[in-house]
Each structure stands twice: as structure tokens, then as C-alpha cells.
Design a protein around this nucleic acid. Sequence first.
RNA 1: GGGCGUAUAGCUCAGUCGGUUAGAGCGCAUCCCUGAUAAGGAUGAGGCCCCAGGUUCAAGUCCUGGUACGCCCA
Length: 1063
Amino acid sequence: MSKATKQPFPALPAQVDLPSVEHEVLRRWSEQKVFERSLEQTQGGPNWVFFEGPPTANGTPGVHHVEARVFKDVFPRFKTMKGFHVDRKAGWDCHGLPVEVAVEKELGLSGKKDIETFGVAEFNARCRESVLRNVDAFTAMTERMGYWVNMDEAYRTMDPEYVESVWWSLKQIWDKGLLTQDYRISPYCPRCGTTLSDHELAQGYETVTDPSVYVRFPLTSGPLAEEGRGAALLVWTTTPWTLVSNTAVAVHPGVDYVVATDGTERLVVAEPLVGAALGEGWEPTGERFTGAEMERWTYRRPFGLVEFDEPAHFVVLADYVTVEDGTGLVHQSPAFGADDMAVCRAYGLPVVNPVRADGTFEEHLDLVGGEFFKTADQKLVADLKERGLLFRHLAYEHSYPHCWRCHTALLYYALPSWYIRTTAIKDRLLAENATTNWVPSNVKDGRYGEWLRNNIDWALSRSRYWGTPLPIWEFPDGRQICVGSLKELGELSGQDLSNLDPHRPYVDDVVIPDPDADPSLPLEQRVARRVPEVIDVWFDSGAMPFAQWGAPHRNRETFEANFPGQYICEAIDQTRGWFYSMMTVSTLVFGESSYENVVCLGHILAEDGRKMSKHLGNILEPMPVMERHGADALRWFMAASGSPWMPRRVGHAALEEIVRKVLLTYYNTASFFTLYANAGQAWSHDRLADAPAPADRPLLDRWLLSELNTLVTTVDEALERFDPAVAGRALTAFVDDLSNWYVRRSRRRFWAGAETPEGAAAFATLFECLETVTLLMAPIVPFLTDHVWDALRRPDAPESVHLAAWPVADESLIDTGLSEQMALVRRLVELGRAARADSNQRTRQPLARVLVGAPGFEALPEQLRAQITDELNVLQLDPLSVVGGDLVDYSVKPNFRALGKRFGKGTPPVAKAVQAADAKALVERLRAEGGASVDVDGETVALSPDEVLVTEQPREGWAVASESGETVALDLELTPELRRAGLAREVVRLVQDARKSSGLDISDRIELWWSATDATTAQAVAEHAAAIGGEVLAATLAEGAPEGESHEVVSEDFGITLHLRRA
RNA sequence: GGGCGUAUAGCUCAGUCGGUUAGAGCGCAUCCCUGAUAAGGAUGAGGCCCCAGGUUCAAGUCCUGGUACGCCCA
């Protein structure tokens, strides 16, 4: 292509395939290393620290993963454009039970015994492989969606450096005395020999029938324990087997308990349950006690099968006791219930557990020795009955958790466990939370604050395999050492461990010899071995601010420069997960939270409003969705559709709408611009300087620039508040204004070229708006904006929009008065179109006159009035008042907003007076004198024009539309001249359609012939020949038909045949 | 059972400082406009702003209590 014909802009064809544009942009980003350069470019700028919450690399990524990843991308891009340096290190959460379960399924293993038979080393190797496989799928999705994050240097929680950092932090906590051992009640499958996670628990509920027994516990101390007439506590349980280890009875301190009798015995029950628990024939004796008064009364336990070394078997107080069912007296066995454990621990009661890990009672016990816990119920109940302790025995149907693998009834079971005493730093956590910015704000004091205020110690250990091993070594005598690094472990164990894989089983083989031990003892008694547990994966991920750098053993400075972080974001389900672990680990180790701003997203639902699940078949796979609609459409949906903090439904319909209404409208405006700028090389960047200063441009341009600069402020403020939905709504509205009002109203100026000041202004204004809106949209839809940027950018502008600076609003161009006036113009145009539609008067037919009655109309400048006449295709525009008099009806209504402000309580009578007043007289006085008065209960009240809403309507011969006190009336009388002008426009449209359908370029000149069978049409064409010819770029216009080839158009409606061809 | 959130047109959702004719999009019907557009515009049908109290001259909006649904926790 020769220089002379080179077009100023690369073409942006009207037809565009968004996904293929995105692939092209991805290629360019990679070739030009745009992400890397955006980081280099901001190297000297202030840090804005973002922490990547590592997705669990378990299973393939779903569309819900895109949600958080969009938010993780939008704000770093935004801040980068504002000059901040935003390092983005990817990360992968590698450990944990979900990985183990997936691998177990793959290998066909069931439970811990199987894993140990299979071999822990091999099992963990498979876990590692599984994680790496899924990381690849996440990487592909991450790249495709345009999430800029450094995946080449991603941290992985399974890497030795990461594990070492976690060890270091655990040692800090250990040194503070906050890492301790205690019992923990976990749902436990005795057959598989494993505890189950909450998630597993949820899959295994089954409805079963258990015994429901009411048992007498005779009192042995307290006011009711007298010899002979002693009363008994009536205690209810559905797990008779736990009565073997009964430790206490809990009552609610605030509930009233009474003694009831049937004449032979006396039983204590909660007052509201007397009838339900005892049945007919029982009368209260009048003795009553609050739960609090019963504290520490002792009783005789139901079974004497196990030994208690410490005092037990008395009444304790617990708030969780209810009077919903049972007797209001709850049997306590701390080894088998979390509530029981908490309550009994508070009283210093022992944890007695006669059930072994396989679910059977210890062999040496009488009655139930060796029996499986569940089947022991029968024998125990029979024994109670025999001894006269059983009061009632019923069947009780309820839902009870079972093992999802083998359907065995689960046991809530006390296992020794490691805890972090987070309750000791609760106040610090609350203080840190108080200074954290939560989005949306209600999470701070609501869901999250509530969780913190009810903080319980963090149960850290898991009896599993694929996790960060708890770095505690224990000597046979119970002394323990917490190890903070491999180096330290090497020194303690006397070997070089720098290349040790710090996972099980390898780390379990490392022993620490006791230098002071008697060398004659066998080796096992002279060395410390690691405790068997691994840790909760939430601790892994909560340690990422330092562990991602391997700090403090490595990269200490980098860590310190990037702590605390400014921004994290995940879905709402992370409130008690990552949001908590991130705040808590840092507060434990460093005394402060690791983040300042945290955004919690609502969940993504399927189009049918349900959760996506394989079972329901309503899963939307992210990669195919992005290939169909484009990643930008999905990104826009995630960032800007509805409220991100609420659950949202995603589906093809929603994405198609985004493509049509937002992305293509924006793109097509840019496409329009390049089409006309390129046509005859009408405009290029060097013409920017020729354009009139903004203040000297037409009002339409000044209006658009005003809207644009308002938009800059709105979008900037919204993104600063982490609210891309508000930004998105403002952008959508602006793009609509730009395309469907500014461009629509300016078409003629673009058509005419940039030679006149008006044309130069139009090109400059549209260019500036496209440039700025491209910048504003770039963080949300990085692909399409970069594609447009590349086509439109100035010669000296950065190669990518993502290397460009964020725009700053020019407030001097914001003119709110002009915005209001244009809004009025657009409302009046809508009313005019409505009036035309009502009277079936098509817009191409010019009309003589339009009348307008609306507050503010008189003040409209001529340029804005011209927009109305042009858009409505009328020759003359006048205020309704010019016809006035008897031709117009007036009605008035009170403006409550204005009146209420002034009169407050006195508003209704004034409003009534306005409604009652003679509308015409009132309006005339308001118009003539700028004020009027009405009579309110004998008093004269002065009113200003803005306190009265006036609606005026012409009486006859007009097409009228009116709304909210604004009226437009069209003169429907058509003169022959007007009819001919209308016909001429019909002809123009016919030719334009023909030009378009025959594939002519917009600037091609044509030859045009016409022949009319309708006399009026013939006259119209002859009369308007010059105008028609000019409008359709006809070099020649002749009556008749051409020789040779041409494009023919026949219109029977107008009785005309046209022929045209390229000149 | 507890905490948090949500409830507005057939569907998806806006609704500012409380202001008296509650909006948009989608869908449906009938028209209109168009030499950028896969667009745009008009009209019509479609509303117990979840229910009940309260505050207020005035409540979709603020308060209290319910109901339903969702999430988290027990």
C-alpha cells in the first residue's frame, strides 16, 4: 500500500469475533511482554500489595473460580494504571484432605488402613501428582481469562521452602506458649479408623431409629437427697452406650426445675417438660429450683463399669441445654460430644473414654467388654431396667451422620489434638478487625465479627498424611521440641537434612537423640520422634504472606517490603476460612493482620438459581463459555453485573446481553469512528490540534465531554471503593449516551469531514471520549479495550492500554446545567416520538411545527432546540405559550418535595389549595409575575414556580404527549409542500438502502436514474433533486433508466423505480 | 437453635437525602428510525414494592415484630 492511500487507522470491521480478538490480544501480550513491562514500568512507584488466596488445586476449575479471579485482576490493573507497583505472585494450595480423598478414590482405597498398607510414601507421591495435574488446568484457565498473575514463580504450599516457613511460624507460636495439646471431639468412623471433615459429614446423613431412654440418677447431695424420700434426676439420652462413661448432668442455669411425684417416687425435671417427659398421673410437689441453684448436687451414676480418678458426677450448668425435648437434664460424657467436652472441661472434669479406636469397649469391662459401641445399647438398657433405673424406653427416629464410604454410624470421639490458643489473642484480633476495611461492610461486624467474638481455640492437627507435618518431636518422657527449620532439625538430629522432603513419611524417620540420656537404654528410649499429626491446611494458606517468599529463612527484605498487604478477595465462604487464617496467623506471629482491605463475593449460581453440580447437570464450564462469548463478557458479568456481594446466576442469556449492550456498542462506536476517519483520510491524530478548544465546540460536544469527565470521577471513586458494579453501570450508561445520542446526532458532521470547525470538533470529541472510556474500561475488559486501543492510540501513546496512565477528570469541563438541559432535550424528543407514534405519523414526514411546554424549555439555547427539531423532523419549534389563551388546557399539581421542605406539617392544606386553585389563573400569574398566592384557611400563602407542577395541553388539532409536567404537541396538518418533502426523504432512504445492500463504500459516488408512476412523487423528486443527489452522493441524477448494468429498486408504495451504479 | 443476608413487573435486577405518576433490561404484541451497530426508539399488556404494626405532613425507602428463601455455624 502506497503512503498516499495509507489509512490513518487500522480498520475495526463492524463484524467482529470477540473470542478470536482475545486470542490475538493474548498473543500480543505474550510477544510484547506487556504484563512484565507493566511491572517494570511501575518499579519506582509505591507498592500496592495484593495477596493471592491459593485455590485448592483439587479438581478442575469452575466458573465460580473466575469470579474471584476477576476481582483479583481488576483492582491490580486499576492500581497499576494509577502508578502503583502491584506484584502478583500466584499460589496453589496443595495439601489437604480433599486431595487425599480424590487420590483414595483414584486408587480404590478406603480409609487409613488401606493407605498405610499401600504405603504413605507412594500415597503422598500420588497426591503431589494429582495436585500438579490440576494446577495445569488452573493455569490454562487463568491465562485465558486474562488474569495477570505471575504463575512462573507461583508459591506452592507443598514446597520445602514453604513448609519451612510454616514451621518457623509454628515455632513462634510455640515459643509464646500458644500451641498446646488437648482433646478434640471429631466425627469418627470406627471402621475406617478416620475422622471425617465437615464436608464428608454432610454427605452421609441417614435417618435411623435409636433408643430414647429416660433414666433415674438418684441424688446423693443437696436439699432433695434426704434418706428415704430421696429424689432422682430424670435424664434423657439417645445414646445409652455413652452412659457407661457418664461424667456429669447439665442443666440450664436459667430454667426452673421442679419435683414431680406419682405418689411413690420423686423425679426432677424441667418445669416446661413435666407433661411431655412424665406423662399422666404426675403432680408437682411444689418444690422448685433454678438450674443455677442445683449446681454441684451429686448423684449416683448409672453404671459403675469404669473408674474415675477424679471427682465427678454432679450437676453442671450449660447454656446450650434446651427444654425442646427430653427432660431438660442432659447427660454428659465429654469423650463423645463437643458440647459435653466444653462444659466438663470448664468444671475440670476428667475425659473418660472406654471405647477403643475400632469402636469396641475395652476388653476388661464387665457387661460390655469387647462389644461394638452401637450394639451395646441393648444390654445396657436391659441392665438399667433390671436395676430399676430405667424410667421409659422409646424408639427415636432422627437423622444421624454415617460414614460416606462404608455407611457405618459415626462416633463423636475425643482424640488427642493440637490447638492454637487463639482465645488468648482474641482482643488483638478484634482490634485488628476494627481497622480492616470490609466490602461489603456488614461482614465486618456481622458474620466475621460474630465469629471472632465467639472465638474458640484453633484445632490445628489432623491425623492424616498429605499435609504440612507438625514440627514437634517428643521424647518418651513427654518432653517436646518444636522445630523451626530443616537446618535446626539437622543440627538437633546430627545429620545434613538440607535436601529432606519435609513430608511424611520421610520426616517421620528423623529422630532427635537426647544427649543427656543414659546410653545403656535402648535407642527408642533415648530419642525424640515426631508426633504423627499434620496440620490444618488453613494454616498453610494463612501463612502465605511470608511463606510465599520462604521468609524469614529466605527473601526477608522482600517479605518486609510487602507486608501487610492492601488487598485480598475471595468468596463469602472464606470468612471463617482464609480471611480468618490470614488475619490470625499474622496476628499470632507478628501482632497484626496481614491485610487492610478485604472483598467478600457472593456465590455464583447456575442459570436455574441452583448451585452448579454434576448431579443437576447445570454446570457451566469456564473455558467453553469464554470461547463462545469471550472472556471479557464473563469478566464484565463477574465484575459489574448485579451486586457482586450477593448470589448471582450466570448463564448464556446474561452473557449475550453483555456482549450486545456493552461490548459491541462500545466496539461499534470505535468502528464507526475509524470508518469515517479513514474515509478519504478525513482525520488523523495530527488534526487534534486543529480542533476548537472544548469551550468553543458545539454544545452537543460540550455535553458529551461533561458526561465523560463526570464518568471519570464516578468510575475512579467506585473502583477506589472496590465497587466495580457501580463503575460498570456508569460505563454502560455512558457508552449508550455516546452511541445512541452523541453519534446519532452527530452523524452528519462525521459525514461532512473534519474540514469545518464543527467537523474537527466532532472527530476530536469522539476520539477523546473513546480514548478515555477505553482507559476506564481496561481493568474490567482488558482484551477488547486493548484491541481498540491498539487501533486508535496516538503515535506517542504506550503500545498497550495496560501500560497507559489512568485518566484524571478535568472538572472545568463538567457542566451540570448543560447535562440537565440535554436530559430535558432527550425527554422532549421522546415525548415527540411518542406523539408521532400515537398519530401514526412516521418520522420521515416533516411536520410544520412542534409546541413544547416544560419548565426550563425557554432557557434552552438555540443549538439544543435544533437537536429537537432535527430529531423530530419538524420545521419550527415554539413554546406552548405562543398559542396560549383558549387553545391550551392547564392543570396544576403540588410539588410535594418543594412544599414539604418549606411547610413541613403544614404541607397538606397548601397542597390542597394548589389542587383547588383555578389552574389557568394560577399558571398565568406564576408566568407573568414569577410567583402567585393561594388561600389556605383564610391565610394568603405565596408560591414560587418550582412549587407547582404545571401540565399544559393544546385542545384540538395536535398530537400530544405529556409526562411529569412536560408536554410536546405536534402540528399534524400536512401541506402539499410537506408531503413532497416527506416523499423526497423516502426516496433518499430507498437509495441509501440500495447503496448499502449493493455493497458500495460509504464514500463511493453513484449515478442515479429515476422514473415515477406517481405524479406527486415525480414532482417531489424533481423539486428536491439537488438535495436528494447531495444526500446520496449522486454524481448524476436523471429521469429514465440507464443503459447496461445497474442496481434496480422498485417501490410500489411510492410509485417510483430507481437505478443506480457506481460512478 | 444462633448469626448474617435477601424479598420491587412473567424472568433478571436498579431505586440517591423519605417527597405523592416506582424504573431498566430480557421476553411478548404493534409500530417507527437507520449509509457504524449483532443496535436504537415509541406504544401496549404486566406491580398487595413479602406480611402486620409503628414513626412521619409524607414510607418501596426509617423502626419493631413475623413469614419465606439463601449462606455460615451448631
